[in-house]
Amino acid sequence: MWASIQNIEQPATLLEANKLNDNKNSVLFSGGTYLVAQKSKEVHTLIDINHLIASKIAEEGEQISIGAGVTLQQMEGHFDKDVIGRSAHQSCYSKNIRNQRTIGGEIAQKSTTSQINVLLHAINVNLKVFVNDRTTEVDINSWDGEGIISEIVFAKDRNVDVKGYSVIPSAPPFIVVGYNYTTKMCVIGGRTNGFANFVVEDGKIDEAVEEKLAEFFADDHHGSCNYKRHLVKVALRDFTG
């Protein structure tokens, strides 16, 4: 029960949804697990946009586009053994929840423990985002979090990988490292406050990156900052051989 919810809106257009969302006691709703994050907040109005966003994966020529309403389980099914399918699978231990969590939700919530989300950042996919009154396209690393994601678009040809580290396989990883072999971009997530990304030449971390990571990682029960930096280096060594 989400007792604070007093009404549910099902707007006819994204434009209408955006307007309704200006109210501070409103939240956009697609899928279901998103609500968990909102449960402690005083939400009065739920703006259901399920019917406004695509839940299909399309491949056209060299391009793949994934509707924001596609579930992790759909991604796993579609991409199967590919790194996309594998990371969608590893983003959540529960198949029940992979049936419910959507890729749009992963991105919109900036889920840092989601391996697929880290991977999409490493690919630097484009997002089709409905902001104000129109759809614009922006790359995921530049997106400011405003608007409603409707689609994720990227090239078929990609050379990326991701690794997550957790104490037992089902536990959310405390470090996730994504790596793009083409652009040499490394993206770090996990039990972190946001993502870190940087370019790595020859699989080696330079001093500036070391410093950036020192600020990025906190000492906590998952491990010290020092240990986490070590793990990133191990991951990069594993990626680049």
Binding site: Q10, T33, L35, N50, I97, N99, Q100
Partner: peptide, 16 residues
């Protein structure tokens, strides 16, 4: 089961 798929009913809003 929702359309043959296992889901957690505590996360499913009735209107959906």
């Amino acid at each position: 089961l929702v359309d043959n798929k296992a889901q957690n009913s505590c996360l499913i809003m009735m209107h959906t």
